[in-house]
Write a protein that binds this DNA or RNA. Structure first.
Lengths: 188, 188
DNA sequence: AGATAAGCGGGGACTGTCTCCGTTTGGCTC
DNA sequence: GAGCCAAACGGAGACAGTCCCCGCTTATCT
């Protein structure tokens, strides 16, 4: 999984600077932030940016991979301290909240969960899917979740809940409400 | 509601041409279609386009106002031929399907239902809200819908269902599924 | 027909994307 | 260390889109 060939020192340095500046820029101006501007702020030419990250999507992915992995890991933490049904709901709540708070994450997670996506995204999308699978399976075994639900459906619905919540005020104030409306339909 | 001052004949002609070409262009290239290109196709200068429609949003609204009004009207048709609960579900289904099929409509309806929106949009957003209000009220009186639901919440959830459905295949194949998962939670 | 203001249109400034290619530099080998 | 060379850099510039400005045209009224 490591680089086949180790990066040259300057390349690595630029890569890291770009990533750092991109994180700032995306947080500040949303996912539409100017790429040339990110390059400038990182003190490199735009050619360098486009060599490391051929598309905006690629850069977005690189910036948020960590956040996505963290979400997947969080699932196990919740599974350990709560009964399965509650753990699932709580996880979905945090998932949706993350999608709203961190601009760009929603679109990214969307494409990670959708069909055709990039290699790196597919992989960390898999972590999320696997996490969802575990929580869903546990809740179903416990008997608090409909048996006919696929974990991918639950993820898509979480995305939907985030979309719905976004419509009423930018903050995620309504997430729990919409999620509870949702789950009362999900419960077996 | 008519123009305070009747438009000059040429202005009206250009306005209509722009609207027609815009509808084609948005259907063809999505809501990001080039505005200058729309102007060119309509045989007018870009200045003319920007005078009639100061922003992309304004043009989008003008193009889809009719479609939105049609959705609102459809609610009464369904209410007349189906029991309240079914009418609501069917309407939400058509609403979500429309949002997915007609590119741009989802974002537009989203902002219509969200907080601050333009005057024209607010008005036809009101038609939709009023329609939702009637269907929701009827279903609640019938006893097939939770009493604590606000109609605006139902609309937002429909938006969420559309978002969720979009994630699995571009067509609206999954709408009914997600809607049924949703409604089984909504039913009293 | 002539007056007049509403409306037209497209040139051009500006912003952002992305590529190309001459120049620089890190990391070898001797 | 000196020298080599491929990897990596950088920024100029082509291109595409947005949007404004202002001199010109034309519908409408009298």
């Amino acid at each position: 999984m490591a680089q086949v060939k180790p990066m040259r020192a300057d390349a690595r340095r630029n890569y890291e600077r770009l990533l750092a500046e991109a994180a700032v820029a995306f947080a500040e101006h949303g996912e539409g932030a100017s790429l040339d501007d990110i390059a400038k702020r990182a003190g490199v030419g735009s050619g360098t940016l486009y060599r490391h990250f051929p598309t905006r999507q690629a850069l977005l992915e690189a910036v948020y991979v960590d956040a996505i992995e963290a979400i997947a890991v969080r699932a196990d933490g919740l599974a350990a301290e709560l009964p399965p049904g509650e753990a699932l709901v709580e996880w979905l709540n945090e998932l949706a909240a993350g999608m709203i708070q961190v601009r760009g994450l929603k679109a990214l997670l969307g494409s990670a969960v959708a069909d055709g996506s990039s290699e790196v995204l597919a992989r960390c999308g898999s972590s999320v899917k696997a996490a969802a699978e575990r929580l869903v399976g546990a809740a179903q075994r416990e008997g608090t979740l409909r048996r006919d639900l696929e974990s991918i459906e639950v993820l898509r619905l979480a995305h939907g809940v985030a979309s719905a919540s976004e419509l009423g005020g930018g903050d995620g104030a309504h997430i729990r409400r919409y999620l509870s409306l949702m789950t009362e339909g999900l419960r077996a």
